[in-house]
Design a binder for these strands. Structure first.
Lengths: 209, 209
DNA sequence: CCTTCAGGTTAACGACCGCTAACCTCCCTG
DNA sequence: CAGGGAGGTTAGCGGTCGTTAACCTGAAGG
């Protein structure tokens, strides 16, 4: 995957602006004329590049899910058995944080507009998301073997909620630098996992086997 | 606040169903006819109870924010100076978890449809939310005095993201019991705060006895 | 030089949606 | 028992939105 230096194609411009607008005002809250205006063309000109408004959302959501999953698989392959599970988990967390900080509109869309997709697209996205989650669950259970699988899955979803909170942060003041924010989020994610996994207070996980 | 035993009024029925539908398909994705149908009347009959579709959303969001803030203030008053800061923080977490588990549609709406409000309503909701956050920040900084204020605010937002992830949990299987889920979320929230507040990687739990 | 075609344009259609108007029907109350 | 308000109903208006149709244009290619 060579780093892109060439200018973005028109399709990419449209997708980027559509993502921003969808994240700001919701899928149904944005008209095609607005999306067109955001890239300098107007309204129906978009139909030279996309089959319809739905197709834009579909491509965005499939792209996000696929990108997250691909990145996670790559990180897992790089560590291939050699590295300690903690290191792999840290790598997953780092990748997710990068994504959450660099592509906030996409992160917002990702868990907000999924239900607006056609059935087939929605199934595809759900499948990619599920694979991503299961990948985290496996790594997490290597780090905390006492953790039961349902609890691990809940913990992963919860940490996603924590990491995906970045869109809510920016509203008030520029907040700490990107690096400091990333580090804080990373520490909190590890802390949350540790609290979930170090069979802590007692017994509630054991009870439900 | 006496526990309600009498039947819900029509207004309350409408609000409840509207919240569910808005959470499922988004504010713009739901028509007034659907909301009416959900409570057994049809379409324009709603206008006997609400000034418009916007008014329903506004009442929902203001209600949520107010309820969260009121509950937190009550919990803070109950502990009035006497209790240890850790206990107060636990109480806040418990209250938020109860809300997140019992009113999932509302939690979903709360950070999804805020921008669909009229300016005045949005300002009111934002103000209530801000007060709620600041209240958490104060308590958190009593527990972790080393924590700088911007970092504390970020940490609070992130933990809200963690706790508000409950809507994502239910999709696949009924998952652990409500009690077990609440306990897991509580531990993770404390763990995340501890990791944010104990400056440095380690030693954070041991120090705070 | 003619053709083709990618990538635009504006006009307009059909569907949907929020809301109002006009009307009906109980039930309560003086 | 009149009557009036609370809480419905259906019909329909006005606006918006996604999409299509028909047309235009500039650059590339034989």
């Amino acid at each position: 995957m060579a780093t892109r230096t060439d200018a973005p194609t028109r399709r990419e411009q449209i997708l980027k602006e559509a993502a921003r607008l969808f994240a700001e005002r919701g899928f149904h809250g944005v008209g095609v004329d607005e999306i067109g205006a955001a890239v300098g063309i107007s309204g129906p000109g978009l139909y030279r590049h996309f089959a319809g408004k739905d197709a834009m959302l579909a491509e965005l959501l499939v792209g996000i899910s696929g990108q997250l999953l691909t990145g996670a698989k790559r990180r897992l392959a790089e560590a291939d058995g050699a590295a300690a599970p903690e290191t792999v988990l840290d790598s997953l967390i780092e990748g997710h944080i990068d994504f959450a900080l660099d592509d906030r509109p996409l992160i917002t869309l990702h868990d907000r507009e999924l239900d607006r997709l056609r059935d087939s697209d929605r199934k595809l996205v759900r499948q990619l998301q599920r694979q991503y989650v299961e990948l985290w669950v496996e790594v997490l259970r290597e780090v905390y073997p006492e953790l039961a699988e349902p609890a691990a899955r809940s913990a992963v979803h919860s940490v996603f909620g924590l990491l995906n909170s970045t869109p809510h942060l920016s509203r008030r003041g520029p907040l700490p630098s990107r690096g400091a924010t990333a580090e804080l989020l990373h520490r909190m994610a590890r802390g949350a996992f540790a609290a979930a996994g170090g069979q802590g207070t007692p017994a509630q996980v054991a009870r439900e086997a």
